[in-house]
Design a protein around this nucleic acid. Structure first.
Length: 422
RNA sequence: GUGGGUGUAGCUCAGCUGGUUAGAGUGCCGGGUUGUGGCCUCGGAGGUCGGGGGUUCAAGUCCCCUCACUCACCCCA
């Protein structure tokens, strides 16, 4: 019988990697707290309708990437492909806007998209999401981006690039879309097959194509920024001004389009050179129409998602730099010492001292080897002789210094080791 | 969904044009005298050569199918 393996595109995060994950999540919680953002935990499973309406029926995510199933012949459910729709659903469902018109939320967890796996892209992947709901002020856009940059640099990332754009609003986007379509219709012969198809489905996507001929065709194309209405234009100008005020460097990428239909006005991405073709480590934008689409009142919002796998792969430092080594290894020699050490070991742990020991009663040499392998800071050697004398050598594994410590009482040993820790 | 690459010990890989009991490094376990780790040294365990079929006296090595992983397209975090 063959072995059962993990599902394609679903990854185990192994113990040696988890230190880095915890480190990054800890920084996230600390940074977010400074900006008054509170954690919300939302379900992994939602009614399919939520994503169809929220993300958009014709997006790639909804058309071909969702894990959807019929629940006991009753209703269609979907493993969430992104978090914003769920956060807004919860926000509306609990009437949070009535308690406080300004809400800042974050959530951390897995997302599911059935794409072909490749470098930096998995079918189950993790995101950190932040949503600022209830404010339209361009300063909100700018401080959200400022905070994202703050967070990423705190994790140690460098050489990141911020790109921003404005996608306009339901008032002004359609006219731009028509214009691009007309512009490209004349040049259809030079477009790649994919882009010919996009001409009908989503002409804005042609901006993203990497094909040289398509890029040439579109080089002269009008920019969306020439078409957005004055409200959107003013908003974008203010966002840029406030970014400058906050000292955030950016470049304008008029070709950036986003894959989810709910975005309006400000859109942004953080990209890196060092990740291969999946180069976006974070992305987001404003979604002022989303609450209405989901059946609520008209409430503006803006947010972003960070790809945790991508982020963590760029965090400097080796995996082992993020794990906590034991303070102490107890090498117990012989029956009597083992009997003495077992309760001692667990009393030390209870007192906050990371302690390890070995039950196999092996030679001191192999117990020392194990202490070394576990990277224990100190080793306490206890044999019959030590128990009789009430004193035992405590070896500092780095300096090789050995000091005799009192082992008359467990309380005494705990106190000695706590003092040593400081 | 479409292409390319790769699948040999826990891990990283070697195995020339098919030829006797499949190798190395690393990791693991144990020794190198009586109670002290890292270095060195000796020994040991560990592989249905991804799976299935075929060609052949003989296949890890050639052919076909299949699966998995991986990179790219696509899309996005």
């Amino acid at each position: 019988m063959s072995n059962i393996t993990a599902v394609r595109g679903f990854k185990d995060i192994l113990p040696e990697e988890s230190g880095k994950w915890q480190h990054v999540e800890k920084i996230a919680r600390q940074v977010f707290a400074n900006y008054g953002i509170h954690e919300i935990k939302i379900p992994l499973l939602e009614k399919t309708e939520l994503f169809k309406r929220g993300i958009g029926e014709t997006t790639d995510i909804v058309e071909k990437e969702m894990y959807t199933f019929l629940d006991r012949g009753d209703e269609y459910l979907t493993l969430r492909p992104e978090a914003t729709a769920s956060v807004i659903r919860a926000y509306l469902e609990h009437n949070m806007y009535k308690v406080d018109p300004i809400t800042k939320l974050f959530t951390i967890g897995p997302m599911f998209r059935r794409e072909r796996p490749q470098k930096g892209r998995f079918r189950q992947f993790h995101q950190i999401n932040v949503e600022f709901i209830g404010q339209k002020d361009p300063r909100v856009d700018s401080e959200l981006i400022f905070m994202l940059a703050h967070f990423l640099s705190t994790t140690g990332l460098t050489n990141l690039k911020l790109e921003i754009n404005s996608l306009g609003c339901p008032e002004c986007r359609p006219s731009f879309r028509e214009n691009i379509k007309n512009f490209l219709n004349d040049r259809e012969g030079r477009l790649c097959p994919d882009c010919k198809r996009r001409l009908e489905t989503n002409p804005l996507r042609i901006f993203d194509c990497k094909n040289d001929s398509c890029q040439e065709s579109i080089a002269e194309a009008p920019s969306i920024l020439e078409y957005i209405c004055s409200d959107c234009g003013d908003h974008f100008e203010s966002v840029k001004r406030y970014l400058e005020l906050l000292g955030v460097e950016y470049t304008i990428n008029t070709r950036m389009v986003r894959g989810l239909d709910y975005y309006t006005q400000t859109a942004f991405e953080i990209i890196t050179e060092s990740l291969g073709s999946q180069n976006a480590i974070a992305g987001g934008g404003r979604y002022d129409g989303l609450t209405r689409i989901l059946g609520g009142p008209d409430i503006p919002g803006i947010g972003f998602a960070i790809g945790l796998e991508r982020l963590i792969s760029l965090v400097p430092g080796r995996d082992e730099d993020f794990i906590q080594f034991p303070h102490l290894f107890i090498a117990a020699l012989g029956q009597k010492a083992q009997e003495f050490s077992f309760p001692l070991c667990n009393a030390l742990r209870k007192a906050g001292i990371r302690t390890e020991m070995d039950f196999s009663d092996r030679s001191l040499k192999s117990q020392m080897k194990r202490s070394d392998k576990l990277n224990c800071l100190n080793t306490l050697i206890i044999g019959e002789r030590e128990i009789d004398e009430g004193k035992a050598p405590l070896r500092n594994m780095a300096t090789k210094e050995q000091n005799s410590i009192d082992i008359q009482s467990i309380e005494g040993i705990i106190q000695t080791l706590i003092n040593l820790k400081q």
